[in-house]
Design a protein around this nucleic acid. Structure first.
Lengths: 192, 192
DNA sequence: CGTCAACTTGATGCTATTCAACTTTGGTGG
DNA sequence: CCACCAAAGTTGAATAGCATCAAGTTGACG
């Protein structure tokens, strides 16, 4: 990995794997997110595109030079990294303490909120979006099995918290109810 | 929180809590670690000292000024934040995919390794240290209950992976065996 | 010597996993 | 066009692993 990069369009995942194959997603890369570590040569994670992906790449060396000469860049990068750290910690709370149902609801809320901000749509009435992840990828995100993901999605559908059209197309009639199911404190937490 | 700070001696924890009281530790602050977020006013986490604690505090405003005028500081802070992010991601793998036994073994390995580097002792032969955390704090770290922590520690003791003297004093006769139990790939991961 | 917090241990229940069978969907070539 | 296939997803039954509830035990300290 001789590059750093920024996601332009598409979605990629950062994952870590144990020798026996257990996998955990540790980052979800969305448009505008930054990949790569200035000042370290080897990649610590697997980066996998889950959709067609366009990234804006920089050779690492020139980029590091820019960082030194342009303090503004380093400061902006620090800010972004702190945001990622906040997101990672929110995620740790999810992984360590939430039930399967709460995990699913949280993930749907995160995707819905991000999707809403990206498309700059008013968040009044029902929210509609397509899941950018397979059941297995969701499982790897949430520290669950794909079967449990499928069951809990079915349960949320049965209980009217979400509506499904096909396997990926989701409608959320009442976002507050979804947040309730997610178990977060009311304000909702960070966006990424 | 009008301060940022650096830990000098002692140990503190960063925790997040769900309304119903479920708690997850999201950071462990050891000597030399940095606390606080430049460019954000409200603290997102609970910071709790678990031992007597000495911190080196800076008012946020002057510190931010230093950051702007001294690019070297911002770069160093970025480096530290990226390290924290790596640690958080390692931790996510633990929370999402490891068994209770592997979680305990991983925590012991982290503490042992950090303790060894701090005291600059050769890592040959048995490693000896005191647990800086109660069973409950370990549980909050690992996403377990305190009873499960207690049981797994007892099990590791029964199996000869660790030795216990009192409740806190731990001896690790074979560090490689402990790493084996932790389920990590052989090299062992980052230190914090 | 009594008290309290930290810890241990046991019995039981529940949640998520595991293993397995089956269904749906989208794409490919006959 | 449609039969076929693979990948993705659903659902069921049985089980494992951790949580929960409930007693005890230990050690430090007044």
């Amino acid at each position: 990995m001789d590059f750093v990069a920024s996601v332009v369009t598409g979605i990629a995942t950062l994952t870590q794997t144990l020798e026996d194959g257990r996998r955990q997603m540790v980052g979800l890369l969305l448009p505008s997110d930054f990949v790569g570590r200035p000042g370290r040569s080897n990649a610590a994670y697997d980066v996998t595109a889950t959709t067609d992906l366009v990234m804006c790449c920089f050779r690492k060396k020139p980029f590091e030079d820019i960082m030194v000469t342009t303090p503004h860049v380093a400061q902006r990068l620090l800010e972004m990294t702190l945001d990622e750290l906040d997101a990672a910690r929110e995620w740790m709370l999810l992984l360590g303490r939430k039930t399967a149902r709460e995990k699913i609801a949280s993930l749907l809320a995160i995707i819905a909120r991000r999707d809403a901000t990206l498309r700059l749509k008013a968040t009044k009435g029902a929210i509609v979006f397509d899941l950018p992840l397979t059941r297995e990828e969701m499982a790897d995100y949430l520290g669950l099995t794909l079967e449990t993901v499928s069951r809990q999605i079915s349960a949320l559908k049965r209980d009217g918290v979400i509506q499904l059209e096909g396997k990926r197309h989701v409608t959320i009639p009442d976002f507050d109810q979804l947040l309730e199911e997610a178990g977060d404190d009311s304000d909702g937490g960070p966006l990424n």
